[in-house]
Computed example of a mutant assay.
Amino acid sequence: MAKHSLTGHNARMNPEHVWTAITTAPDGLSESPFWHPQEHRLYWVDIPGRRLARLLIQGQMQAQGTVEYWPMAEEPGCIAPVQGGGLIVALRDGIYLGTAWGGPLQLLAAAPYDTTKMRFNDGKCDAHGRFWAGTLYEPKDQALGQLYMLDAQGLHAMQGGVTTANGLAWAPDGRAAYWSDTAAHRVRAFDVDLASGQFSGERLFHQMTPKPAAWAWGSDAPYAGRPDGAAMDAEGCYWSAQYEGQRLLRLSPTGQIMTEVTTPVPCPTMPCFGGPDLQTLFITTSRQGRSPQELTQYPQAGCVFAMRVAVPGLGVNFYQA
């Protein structure tokens, strides 16, 4: 059952939620965060900055040292940890394996699309160690984006019909998956075959209200944002970052809004759960393409933030080659 989002962009809800900035130097567009439980580090990507980032976190939300960066030759859309060490990285031209931070990359699968018009975007691993990455069709005038899955047999096209693939997440038992199309303001749900990973039974999970044609930041027209990256908590609730909506939504397993949390900056991009108890919620954010007026009001746009939550999230899944 889906519900429409009608709250305006300037809503201030749940003031009891307190955010802490864990970075001070903003990225252009940070995305794909995950908590590494063995390293006690938060990892993420800066897409226009063409770099990966990581930061040691002590306790629950205390950053230790400075952010480490790993430059990339092209835009990284998403990353995931690898069982036994290293990272799997989806760049514009393909999916790569990096066995050591800052070291060489090994091509696992070339991009199966026109890289002048498309790139990999949101993605992560499922509980079986398969790596999933969706694509973004950059002209944004057709729903040509796809969702791909990489396993030991190679790269497979699994789902299509989106313009900007985002918000991939699985239910705690792995039997349902969620996937959003940011441009369509829509999150879809699917049944999942655990053995193959195949999706079936597509249905509407949640429909956000479309962006008004003349809307711009600071205008009086109500706009609550569109679905970007997402994470799943232990109760099977789907946390969706609402880009330009300055909020996170916690959606029930039936797609109803349970909680709305205001974010420190207008463009949250993706949440993830971390910390020793998985009760720290991290969010990445964006400053790319924002107006000078907005950045004056929100100078921390592009930073990474954290807050404590009552319900723990699901931990990251590792890629198993």
Rank of each mutant, 00 (worst) to 15 (best):
T23G: 10
W239C: 07
L249K: 02
D191T: 14
Q159H: 15
L42R: 08
A171C: 06
E138I: 13
F282A: 06
P210H: 12
L136P: 00
Y137P: 03
Q142K: 15
A171G: 12
T115L: 08
E75R: 14
T269E: 02
W70Q: 07
Q58P: 00
E75L: 09
P222D: 14
A176M: 13
L194P: 01
T259G: 00
P271E: 05
L42Q: 10
A176Q: 15
Y178A: 06
C125K: 01
A216W: 04
W170P: 04
A152V: 11
G84C: 02
E74F: 06
F273N: 03
T20W: 02
G274F: 04
F199D: 03
A2D: 13
Q106A: 13
A90E: 01
Q60A: 15
S286N: 01
G134A: 09
M1L: 11
I88L: 11
R188M: 13
F318S: 06
L168I: 13
R188P: 01
A11P: 00
A152W: 01
S200V: 05
T23M: 11
G315T: 09
P81K: 02
L108P: 01
N317A: 13
P26A: 10
L6Y: 12
L107R: 14
G225L: 12
D27F: 13
R12G: 00
V187P: 01
M307H: 07
P292H: 08
D114G: 07
T285E: 08
E31V: 11
L248I: 08
G315L: 08
P266N: 10
W170I: 09
Y319D: 00
G129S: 08
P71Q: 10
